[in-house]
Nucleic acid binder design. Sequence first.
DNA 1: AAAGCACCCTGTACGC
DNA 2: TGCGTACAGGGTGCTT
Length: 274
Amino acid sequence: MPELPEVETIARELRRSVVGAAITHAHVHWPRSIAAPNPWAFARDVSGRQITAVSRRGKWIVVVLDEGKTLLVHLRMTGRLLVTNGACPDAGYVRVRFLLDDGRSICFHDVRKFGRLHLVDEPEAVLGALGPEPLASGFTLDEFRRLLRGRRGRIKPLLLNQRFVAGLGNIYTDEALWRARIHPLRKANHLSRNEITRLWAAIRDVLARAIESGGTTLDDGGFVGAGGDPGEFAPHLAVYGREGDRCPACDAEIERMVVCQRGTHVCPGCQEMR
DNA sequence: AAAGCACCCTGTACGC
DNA sequence: TGCGTACAGGGTGCTT
């Protein structure tokens, strides 16, 4: 489940290792992984393009190519982008493979086939609907307060909404709410000024620290970076996947509930519903 | 505006 | 051992 920190980790690794290389060929092994244009045109149009930059927007990896083309990759649940020299590991799960002019490959590896690749001229057509980047300097406390105003829904689904804020997924939403001591079912517009301040700081802090740790790799081994290495943030998770464990802050037993069809982890001691 | 659900997928965990 | 079933989850699209 790559979220903002995992996608950022991959983008940084790609930036360091493949900017300047050219894509000589693309093999599409699972056509439905290609969202646009059609798989045949995708393979044709991406071939011969040089990689000029790699960045991230929300959970999207943005690969800027020459001649005005941009490759957008969303990893969804199980997607990986692996830079390899020679054969791709677990080749049976490689849905798209890009051959580079230096002999290496970028393998799009995706067990559950939910990930999608777009080759576009106008990335904003895809990325434009995303909410603000939570780590950008423009995402101030005032801005967060303004965004919450008038939102009458519950806070967890709102944080998961990519149009509200870009990049939060199930793991970091649960962690941020725990750090801010806010129950996931609280109404967004009923949060106090102090709670909003805590939540804003918690979101930015947990994301920044997870990036420093190279992301979260759970016991299932889902996430790995472009070099195949797992992230180191899992030991720092306080509630996510820790049902039955003790809260690091108050020693209460972590509970699991379901909110908007998502497994949700809360400390009953720290996160009261009120 | 918000909430609920089906869908897309497959590995894993479970009950029998 | 082996089968069937439930479950996990990000995002989209539809309905209520």
